[in-house]
Simulated assay, not measured.
Amino acid sequence: MVFAKIVETEKEYDDAIYIRRKVFVEEQDVPLHLELDEYDMKATHFVAYDGDTPFGAGRIRIAEPTIGKVERVCILPEYRGKKLGNLMMECMEDYAKDHQFKKLKLNAQSHAIPFYEKRDYVITSPEFLEAGIPHRAMEKEL
């Protein structure tokens, strides 16, 4: 069974961090000190599983009252192209709605913009570099 959920245990947190390290640090060469940051302790984390095998992760933190910041959304390469990023985002957006967020913001890697646009996020910035990777800011009214 494939599902995404809010991280509730230390093992689930470790699984989410494992996915982030595989994707961002190993695959995309983001320095570990940038990937694991001071917001990890304040954020609500999410993890996706195929049975017992983790394959996706993400987090939301409060950016401003009623505005959430979606960050660190990633799927392992072997699970991409199967609409599982949508599963991850649905879980995170449901959490945001349940917690009365009015808007979600995120910094999308430029190659992922079409994915977020299909989920009704709109671009709100010119392109910029984050960890050496081109990004654009996006947001969505909930």
Rank of each mutant, 00 (worst) to 15 (best):
M1F: 01
V2Y: 05
F3I: 08
A4R: 02
K5M: 01
K5Y: 00
V7T: 14
V7R: 13
V7L: 12
V7I: 14
E8V: 03
T9M: 06
E12K: 10
E12H: 08
E12L: 09
Y13V: 09
D14Q: 15
D15H: 15
D15R: 14
A16V: 10
I17S: 02
Y18K: 14
Y18A: 09
Y18G: 00
R21N: 10
K22T: 05
F24G: 05
E26W: 01
E26D: 11
E27P: 01
E27H: 05
E27S: 10
D29V: 01
P31E: 11
H33M: 02
L34Y: 07
L34V: 06
E35H: 04
E35G: 08
L36V: 14
D37V: 07
E38C: 06
M41Q: 11
A43D: 02
H45L: 11
A48R: 04
Y49S: 09
D50S: 13
D50F: 07
D52W: 05
P54Y: 11
P54I: 14
P54R: 12
P54E: 11
F55A: 02
A57S: 15
G58Y: 03
R59M: 10
R61C: 04
R61M: 12
I62C: 01
I62N: 00
I62E: 11
A63N: 12
A63H: 14
A63M: 13
A63S: 12
E64T: 04
E64A: 08
T66M: 06
T66L: 06
I67P: 00
G68W: 05
G68L: 02
K69S: 10
E71L: 11
E71T: 14
R72A: 06
R72K: 13
R72G: 04
V73P: 01
C74F: 01
C74V: 09
I75D: 09
L76E: 09
P77L: 10
P77T: 10
E78V: 02
E78K: 01
Y79V: 08
Y79D: 00
R80N: 00
K82N: 09
L84H: 07
N86T: 14
N86H: 05
M88H: 05
M89R: 04
M89N: 05
C91E: 15
M92Q: 08
M92F: 07
M92S: 01
E93N: 03
Y95L: 01
Y95Q: 05
Y95A: 03
Y95V: 08
K97Q: 12
K97Y: 13
D98V: 07
H99V: 09
H99D: 04
Q100F: 13
Q100S: 15
Q100N: 15
F101D: 03
Y116K: 11
E117T: 10
E117A: 13
E117R: 10
D120Y: 05
D120E: 14
V122W: 01
T124A: 07
S125A: 08
E127D: 08
L129R: 01
E130S: 10
E130N: 09
E130K: 13
A131F: 12
G132C: 09
I133H: 08
I133W: 04
I133N: 08
I133E: 06
P134E: 03
H135T: 03
H135Y: 03
H135Q: 03
H135N: 02
E139R: 05
K140D: 00
E141S: 10
E141Y: 05
E141N: 08
E141T: 12
